[in-house]
Amino acid sequence: MDIADIKRPENLVYRKPALITDNVMHYCPGCSHGTVHKLIAEVIEEMGIQDSTIGISPVGCSVFAYNYIDIDWEEAAHGRAPALATATKRLCPDKHVFTYQGDGDLASIGTAEIIHACSRGENIVVIFINNGIYGMTGGQMAPTTLIGMKTSTTPYGRDPKLNGFPMVIADMIAHLDGTAYITRQSVHTAAAVRKAKSAIRKAFEYSEKNIGLSFVEIVATCNSGWKMSPVDANAWMVEHMFRKYPIGDIKDVLK
């Protein structure tokens, strides 16, 4: 069969989600942000909640998330996305509200906001992209940077005596009664992408049920900050990041 005969509308099995805009993403080649944006767009499209979803974009590489997914957005001050999401959800309880945050935003300057939002059990979804580094500002050490990992502010590797230990946010907030669903996923292979998508879908469904905060951590790469090719960064993530941040569900109150 000829290639041209296969490329017909009736044979279409995968296309770019309709909610992803035509703007060219400013992310570096191979950045996990693009893949996660796509999954969120697919979930919103499949659930048919485009008109009732409000995203809160963070400060960091993903600050321009509002340019790429065609829904309503708010832009929060650095780390304050969960506080803004709290206000939005309480004022508009029928809306689906989610925050999209990186580790520099959520695990550092925004630690107080995320912990208290979890403690209050706000019915929001938090998407947390953890790549162990500050991507936008030049690859500095983040709270989630692994021991021994080289960054621009720890050129000889992170030393716990000087820089402390990596923070495992998802496990920390699992102890808080306000959280309903906490999971850690990744998007480096097709199978991982499918699992991450069902986790994001579950998180949105849980927030509809008003049973607490749903938290999806995505262990991601920053190939520019890590100074590797996208393919090498994925392999490095599997070898090193997964040891500290193992993939899987951490908490599910409905199970």
């Binding site: 942000h33 693009g34 499918r194």
Partner: peptide, 22 residues
């Protein structure tokens, strides 16, 4: 084989996949 693995992992959503049974 039109499995869509390439398109699923593509960060910039540039791949469209078609598949037929033979």
């Amino acid at each position: 084989i039109g499995c869509s693995a390439c398109a699923l992992v593509c960060p910039d959503s540039v791949i469209t996949v078609y598949r037929v049974k033979i």
